[in-house]
Design a binder for these strands. Structure first.
Length: 725
RNA sequence: GCGCGAUUAGCUCAGUGGUAGAGCGUUUCAUUGACAUUGAAAAGGUCGGAGGUUCGAUCCCUCCAUCGCGCACCA
C-alpha cells in the first residue's frame, strides 16, 4: 500500500504532479471555492518585470503571499491572488538595449514601431517563462485573472486616467528643469536619480568686481545673473546693479540680485546664476523673473556645448562648440587662468552630485516640456490614510519614511523619452502648438482648426500605470471583481519600492478609485548573499531560485526563505539553510510513512479510549495551532514557520512517536488503537499547519491519510488546499 | 545636513521589565531502528560601551561608539 513513499523524499516529480492537480481543481480561482465564503481576502501580486527570470527576491515574495493566501483559504475566506507581469518600461528597454548592443545595433537607429515590436516579443517570451517559474514555487494564484501591464484594457484605462486627471487639473504640462540622462536620452522623476558624494575642484572665478565659486565653470556662458544674500552687507552697494563680467569668449552684463537661497557663508557669498543648467538657479530665476533673463541653454541633450547661438559675434565661442562637458571644463579653466581670472581652486571640496540610477552617469538638469502630476493634493490624503490607521505598515517603522517622503514631495514628471511603454494620449497642433488631451486622435485643432496634429512621442513613467495596478487589475470601475475584491487586504513587496510603487498606489488608489488600495503593507527585506552583499548580475552572485528548487524542492526553499526572516530586514541566504529544510521535508515524509505503516490495520469502527496523557497531547497540538494562528494573523510568518517546524520534529517525531512505539506493538488492542489514533490525529493536524509553508509535500501526504472525523469514521476527503484550518 | 536600522552563542538571526533562545556549525556517543537528509548528549553568550528610570534592565530613557541604509536642489 505504501509503495508511493520513495525513500528518501524526492520532491521533483511530486511537486510537478501536485501543482497540476491544484490547477485542475480550479481552487486557485475564488469563484470555484466550495462552501459559503462571505469574507474575501485579496492580494494583488507585484508583477515581476518581464525582462528576465525570477530571482530569490521573487521567490520570497511568492512564498510570503502564498502563505497568506493558503492560510486564509483554509480559514474559509474567498481568496484571490491575482498574478501579473510588468512591461517595466525603462528597465526593460535598458535590458533590451544591452542585448542589441551585443549584436552591434543601436536603438536610436531602429524605427520606433519595429523596436517596440521587438521588445514586445522579448517580454512575451520572458513572461511565459516566468509564469512557469512561479508555478514551480507553488504559488496558488488565480491564473485565469492574470494581467500584463500592457493589456489593452490596462493601456486604455491608464490613458483615460491621464485624460481625466488633466481635466481635473491634477496633471499639467510644465516647462521646467528635469533630470536628464545623457546616455539614456530621457528625463526622469526625482526617484530615478541617486546621489553620490564626490570631491571636485571648486573654482573661485573673478567675475567683474566680484568673485564667484563654482564646480561647473563651463556653465558661465549660460549665466544670467549673480545672486547674493539679501542680508549680506558686503554686496549691498552692488545689489540691483548690472555689472560687466568676462566670460572668456565675450563680455556680458549681469544683474546682481538678492535671494535668500544664497548662503553668505559659502564660497564668497556670491553665486553665478545659470537657470538653464542648475535646479537651484532655476528656482532663483523663478523668483526674479521680472528682473533677469531666463534660462540660456548652452549644453545640448547630448551633453555637448551648444553656445554659439548665444554668442554669434564671438570667434572664441567656436572652439567650445560641440565639446563634451568635461573637455569644455578643462578648456575654460585654462582660458580663465590665462586671463588671470581664477582666484583660487579649492581641491578639497566635497559635495553630492546627482547620477542616473541605472548607468551612474552624471545627470544634466535640462529645461524641457514634460507632463507633471501635482503631488501635494494626492499626498495629503495618502498621509491621512496611514495616520488614521486605515492602512497599516509592517513593520511599522516604514511609516516614518513614508511620511517624510510625502511631506517633501515635488511634482512628478511622468514623461519618458523612450519607446517601451504606454503612449501619452496628448496631441499637439503642428500649427499653433496647442495641446489636446484625448484618447483618440482629434480631427482638428480646437483652437486653430488645423488638421496637422501629432501625438506626443513620449510614454508614461511605468509607475504611473503600475501605481493604478490594484484597481486596474480588478477591472475598475465597473467589473464585479472591483466591487468584490477592492480594497485588497495586503500589499506585499520589497521595502526598496516603497516610494516608487507603494506610496503612489496609495495616492492614486484613493484619488482615482476613491478608496485605499490595500489595508496592509507588508515590506520584506532584500535578500543578501553570504557576505551580506546585495545580489546583482554585475557582481555575479545571483542565485537562481529554480536551480535551488530543482535540487532541494520548492518546499525547502520556501522554508529557508521564511523561517527567521523578519519583515523589513534584509535576510542572508544560505544553501545550508535550504539543505536543513530539505532534511525537514524528508523527516515529514519518513514520519508520515511510519504512522501510515503502523495504522494500516486501524479499526475505524472502534472507539479508541484515550488516556489522560493522550488527551494532553491533543491539547498541546491545539495550543500550537492557536499560537500559530495568532502568529499568522499578526504577519509573523518567521515565527509561525519555526514553531511548526519545531513542534513537528522535536515534539511529534522525537517525543510522541518514540513514546507510541511500544504501544503499537502492544497485545492490548485498545491501547494500540489509541496510539494509532493519536498518531494519525497529530499527523493530520500538523500536516495542515504545515501546508501554507510547505504546500507540496503536505498535499501529497494528505492524499494518503485516512481522515478521522469524530471517532472511528473515515470519510471522503477533500484536497488539503481547501481543507478547514 | 535630516532620518532609519543593526550591535545577543563560531555563523545567520529570533526574543522578553523578573534565573538567556532557535537553526546551522563544533565535540562526544549511538549504527541495519520511520528517517544517516538520523538519534542521544555536550560545549559555547558579564545580550556594543557609559549613565539614568526601576525592587529588578538584554528589553524603557539619554549619551557615545562601530557598521549598514534611506532621504536631501547649498553654488
Amino acid at each position: 500500500m505504501l509503495k508511493q513513499f520513495d525513500n528518501p523524499y524526492n520532491p521533483r516529480e511530486i511537486e510537478e504532479k501536485i501543482y497540476k492537480l491544484w490547477e485542475k481543481s480550479g481552487f486557485f480561482n475564488p469563484d470555484n471555492l466550495p462552501g459559503k465564503r462571505k469574507k474575501t481576502f485579496t492580494i494583488i501580486m507585484p508583477p515581476p518585470n518581464a525582462n528576465g527570470s525570477l530571482h530569490l527576491g521573487h521567490a520570497l515574495m511568492l512564498a510570503l503571499e502564498d502563505i497568506m493566501i493558503r492560510y486564509r483559504r483554509m480559514k474559509g475566506d474567498k481568496t484571490l491572488w491575482l498574478p501579473g507581469a510588468d512591461h517595466a518600461g525603462f528597465e526593460t528597454q535598458i535590458v533590451y538595449d544591452k542585448i542589441i548592443e551585443k549584436e552591434g545595433r543601436n536603438r536610436f537607429e531602429i524605427a520606433r514601431e519595429k523596436f517596440y515590436q521587438e521588445i514586445w516579443d522579448f517580454t512575451q517570451k520572458n513572461k511565459a517563462l516566468m509564469e512557469n517559474q512561479i508555478r514551480k514555487l507553488g504559488a496558488s494564484c488565480d491564473w485565469s485573472r492574470k494581467k500584463f501591464t500592457l493589456d489593452e484594457d490596462i493601456i486604455s484605462k491608464t490613458q483615460e486616467a491621464f485624460v481625466d486627471f488633466y481635466k481635473e487639473g491634477l496633471i499639467y504640462r510644465g516647462n521646467r528643469l528635469v533630470h536628464w540622462c545623457v546616455k539614456h536620452q530621457t528625463g526622469f522623476s526625482d526617484l530615478e536619480i541617486v546621489h553620490e558624494e564626490r570631491i571636485d575642484p571648486l573654482y573661485y572665478i573673478k567675475y567683474g568686481p566680484l568673485t564667484v565659486a563654482t564646480v561647473r565653470p563651463e556653465t558661465i556662458f549660460g549665466d544670467t545673473a549673480i545672486a547674493v544674500n539679501p542680508g549680506d552687507k558686503r554686496y549691498k552697494s552692488l545689489t540691483g546693479k548690472e555689472i560687466e563680467v568676462d566670460v572668456v569668449i565675450a563680455k556680458v552684463k549681469l544683474k546682481v540680485i538678492a535671494d535668500p537661497a544664497v548662503d553668505p557663508e559659502f564660497g564668497t557669498g556670491a553665486v553665478k546664476v545659470t537657470p538653464a543648467h542648475d535646479l537651484n538657479d532655476y528656482e532663483i530665476w523663478q523668483r526674479h523673473k521680472n528682473e533677469i533673463e531666463g534660462p540660456r541653454e548652452v549644453i545640448n541633450k547630448y551633453g555637448k556645448m551648444n553656445l554659439i547661438r548665444h554668442f554669434p559675434d564671438s570667434e572664441e565661442a567656436k572652439k567650445y562648440e560641440g565639446l563634451k562637458i568635461s573637455e569644455a571644463r578643462k578648456l575654460i579653466v585654462e582660458d580663465l587662468e590665462k586671463k588671470g581670472l581664477i582666484e583660487k581652486i579649492d581641491l578639497t571640496y566635497r559635495h553630492n552630485i546627482a547620477l542616473c540610477y541605472k548607468c551612474k552617469n552624471v545627470i544634466e538638469p535640462r529645461l524641457m516640456e514634460q507632463w507633471f502630476v501635482k503631488m501635494k493634493p494626492l499626498a495629503k490624503s495618502a498621509v491621512e490614510a496611514v495616520k488614521k490607521g486605515r492602512i497599516k505598515f509592517i513593520p511599522e517603522r516604514f511609516k516614518k519614511v513614508y511620511f517624510h517622503w510625502l511631506k517633501n514631495i515635488r511634482d512628478w514628471n511622468i514623461s519618458r523619452q523612450i519607446v517601451w511603454g504606454i503612449r501619452i494620449p496628448a496631441w499637439q497642433c503642428e500649427n499653433c502648438r496647442e495641446w489636446i488631451i484625448s484618447k483618440e486622435k482629434p480631427a482638428r485643432c480646437a483652437r486653430c482648426s488645423s488638421v496637422e496634429i501629432k501625438q506626443d512621442l513620449d510614454v508614461f513613467d511605468t509607475w504611473f500605470s503600475s501605481g493604478q495596478w490594484p484597481f486596474l487589475t480588478l477591472g475598475y470601475p465597473d467589473k464585479k471583481d472591483f466591487k468584490n475584491f477592492y480594497p485588497t487586504n495586503v500589499m506585499e513587496t520589497g521595502w526598496d519600492i516603497l516610494f516608487f510603487w507603494v506610496a503612489r498606489m496609495i495616492m492614486l488608489g484613493i484619488y482615482r478609485a476613491k478608496k485605499i488600495p490595500f489595508k496592509n503593507v507588508y515590506l520584506h527585506g532584500l535578500i543578501r548573499d553570504e557576505f551580506k552583499q546585495k545580489m546583482s548580475k554585475s557582481k555575479g552572485n545571483v542565485i537562481d531560485p529554480l536551480g535551488v528548487v530543482n535540487e532541494y524542492g520548492a518546499d525547502a526553499l520556501r522554508m529557508a526563505l521564511i523561517v527567521g526572516n523578519t519583515p523589513g530586514n534584509d535576510p542572508v541566504f544560505s544553501e545550508d539553510k535550504v539543505r536543513g529544510y530539505r532534511n525537514f521535508a524528508n523527516k515529514i515524509w519518513q514520519a508520515s510513512r511510519f504512522v501510515l505503516i503502523n495504522s494500516e490495520n486501524f479499526d475505524f469502527k472502534s472507539k479508541p479510549k484515550l488516556s489522560a496523557t493522550d488527551k494532553k497531547k491533543l491539547n498541546e497540538l491545539s495550543k500550537i495551532k492557536k499560537d500559530i494562528s495568532n502568529l499568522m494573523e499578526s504577519f509573523k510568518f518567521y515565527a509561525a514557520s519555526e514553531k511548526i517546524y519545531h513542534y513537528f520534529w522535536h515534539i511529534f517525531c522525537d517525543k510522541i512517536i518514540e513514546e507510541m512505539k511500544p504501544r503499537l506493538n502492544n497485545e492490548n488492542k485498545k491501547d494500540k488503537l489509541a496510539a494509532q489514533y493519536i498518531l494519525l490525529e497529530i499527523l493530520k493536524g500538523s500536516i495542515k499547519l504545515l501546508h501554507p509553508f510547505m504546500p507540496f509535500i503536505t498535499e501529497e501526504i494528505w492524499s494518503y491519510l485516512p481522515v478521522l472525523r469524530g471517532l472511528g469514521q473515515a470519510e471522503n476527503k477533500k484536497m488539503l488546499i481547501i481543507e478547514k484550518w
